[in-house]
């Protein structure tokens, strides 16, 4: 059974639909890349999956034991966070909030979980550092560790490498790949980076005038035009 099923989904914002008749399923252990032009509704889709906004019609269902608050989310950074005084540890721990319910304080188990997540993303040495003093790549790792605290099952990543230089992007991709392979975390990633999508993903969801959902190999045959620019760095979908 699939972890996430979207059926006849129609989504949009401010009453204006951007996507209609969207159907796809994500199973445990999949690595799905969501690609498409700007404004094709990638972020809106992600927000709908997370329940931050309601679909116009259709449904988003969780299955295979996945609960609504068990999806880890790596949002795009907001301007507000750029000068927020917070230590890395405080931020990572806040990912455990969903486990607390109304309990006001964290238990040992949650602190351990946060420590494990930091360990996994190789940021333990930064625990006491201030978030806003870190480099872009380190900040993304912190947010990724926070997302890991919320789940061990599924991660939603909204353009995780935007604004990072190629080297750091590569490292982040490798880290995500490790989480996918070693820990069996299901990955849903919005990306502009066709090359990376082709390297790491198992499935592709292409949004835009033509929609596509299926395994990567089929996508390569059906959408050869998507790869015209893929040789160069950051070649998006044309």
């Amino acid at each position: 059974m699939a972890q996430l099923i979207c059926q006849n989904l129609a989504i949009g914002y401010e009453g204006r639909p951007v996507l209609q008749e969207l159907n796809f399923e994500v199973c445990a252990g999949d690595y799905l890349c969501i690609v498409g032009e700007n404004g094709s509704g990638k972020s809106t889709l992600m927000k709908t999956i997370l329940g931050l906004q309601h679909p116009f019609s259709g449904s988003v269902q969780m299955g295979d034991g996945l609960k609504k608050n068990e999806i880890g989310y790596l949002p795009q950074q907001t301007s507000l966070q750029k000068d927020f005084p917070a230590s890395v540890q405080e931020i990572v721990l806040s990912g455990c909030q969903g486990r607390c319910g109304l309990r006001p304080f964290y238990h040992k188990a949650e602190k351990q979980r946060a420590a494990d997540a930091m360990e996994k993303l190789q940021i333990s040495h930064l625990a006491k550092r201030c978030y806003r003093m870190l480099s872009g790549g380190q900040q993304q790792r912190v947010l990724l560790a926070r997302a890991l605290c919320a789940t061990k099952k599924m991660l939603l990543l909204d353009e995780p490498v935007s604004g990072l230089d190629p080297n750091v992007s590569m490292q982040l991709y490798e880290l995500i790949q490790k989480l996918h392979k070693e820990d069996g975390v299901t990955i849903l990633m919005i990306s502009h980076d066709m090359e990376a999508a082709m390297t790491y993903a198992t499935h592709i969801l292409h949004l835009g005038r033509q929609q596509f959902f299926g395994p990567k190999t089929v996508y390569q045959q059906e959408f050869p035009q998507a790869f015209l620019g893929a040789g160069s760095k950051g070649g998006g979908v044309r």
Binding site: K47, L50, G51, L52, K68, N69, I71, Y73, P75, T78, Q81, F84, A86, E90, I91, L93, S94, G95, Q97, G98, C100, P104, F105, Y106, R146, A147, A150
Partner: peptide
């Protein structure tokens, strides 16, 4: 802790069920 989570990142806080 909830105030922190929700001040730092409202959307994320929402997804964790706050």
């Amino acid at each position: 802790h909830k105030i922190f989570a929700l001040t730092f990142d409202e959307d994320f806080a929402k997804t964790t069920g706050i």
